[in-house]
């Protein structure tokens, strides 16, 4: 009996990839995130939804400490990745970002070749032992990002010469080439047309087999389509967090319901 509870707990613990407690983010004197606590599961797609300016991006950037690069931003509270505090003094944010990849709202390929874009991360982290190894990593990343067939004949072409949807898939390939454990995506499809969006969504669905994916989206349909868990933010508060189906069909909080039904936003 006792044994079973222990294993159950261990299983749950293992499931939780990121755990945030009482996180506040300030830009100068203004507070953008208020006391948010959340547990994010591994091998799951978690969606952050909420009206524009409610702090979704700000909170997402806490997980790979990208807020450090914004001069006015200050983060308090604890965030643990696999049970380890990511703000611990002995933890190198550069190493952290290799484990927690990020895809941005606007595709931002480097003005380098497609190959070099994908190879950039593996090169700086020394993931490839040889040129053949690197070729292999690049090919695998491009395949997983569903870009291999379109790009295999022109790996030396500039990454900026691709279409918007292809550029975003290139950025996803670039992020997964460093073998991260977590993939953060900040409105990855908002600059794309419906077909490219559908491809990206399909891709996200496949990625959850291997990664913990957190996606910010302003489209509730998208959240419903790709995620298993949904967190609703409003004015810097985490209002409600639960299974996606429950949030959309049976929200417990009044504010969530207002947003879902289109009364705020």
């Amino acid at each position: 009996m006792n044994d079973m509870r222990m294993t159950e707990r261990a299983r749950l613990m293992q499931d939780i990839k990121i755990s945030a407690r009482d996180v506040n983010v300030y830009y100068g004197a203004t507070r953008a995130i208020n006391d948010v606590s959340i547990d994010i599961r591994d091998k799951t797609v978690t969606a952050f939804i909420g009206p524009s300016g409610c702090g979704k991006s700000t909170f997402l950037r806490c997980f790979n400490r990208m807020n450090d690069t914004i001069e006015s931003a200050r983060v308090t509270g604890t965030i643990e990745l696999d049970g380890r505090d990511i703000h611990a003094p002995d933890l190198d944010p550069v190493q952290l970002r290799a484990r927690v990849g990020m895809v941005f709202q606007k595709p931002n390929p480097f003005p380098k070749s497609i190959y070099d874009n994908v190879a950039y991360g593996p090169k700086i982290h020394g993931l490839a032992a040889s040129k053949a190894d690197l070729d292999d990593i690049v090919e695998r990343a491009l395949r997983r990002a569903a870009l291999w067939d379109e790009s295999k004949d022109r790996l030396t072409a500039s990454g900026t010469s691709l279409s918007g949807g292809q550029q975003q898939r290139l950025c996803i390939a670039r992020a997964i080439a460093t073998e991260p454990e977590v993939l953060l995506m900040d409105e990855p499809a908002s600059a794309l047309d419906p077909i490219a969006t559908a491809q990206i969504e399909e891709l996200i669905d496949e990625l959850k087999e291997n990664y913990c994916v957190v996606i910010v989206t302003h489209s509730m349909q998208q959240a419903a389509r790709v995620s298993q868990r949904t967190a609703f933010f409003h004015l810097g508060d985490l209002v409600e967090y639960g299974d996606t189906g429950q949030i959309f069909t049976n929200p417990k909080n009044e504010r969530t319901e207002s947003y879902i039904t289109g009364r705020i936003g």
Partner: peptide, 22 residues
């Protein structure tokens, strides 16, 4: 563009690597 800098940093590049390589 700032987005290139963010992109490189988010891949785990140090500021110096971001500067020299991107």
């Amino acid at each position: 563009p700032r987005s290139l800098r963010d992109g490189a940093l988010a891949l785990g590049a140090t500021p110096a690597e971001t500067m020299t390589r991107v």
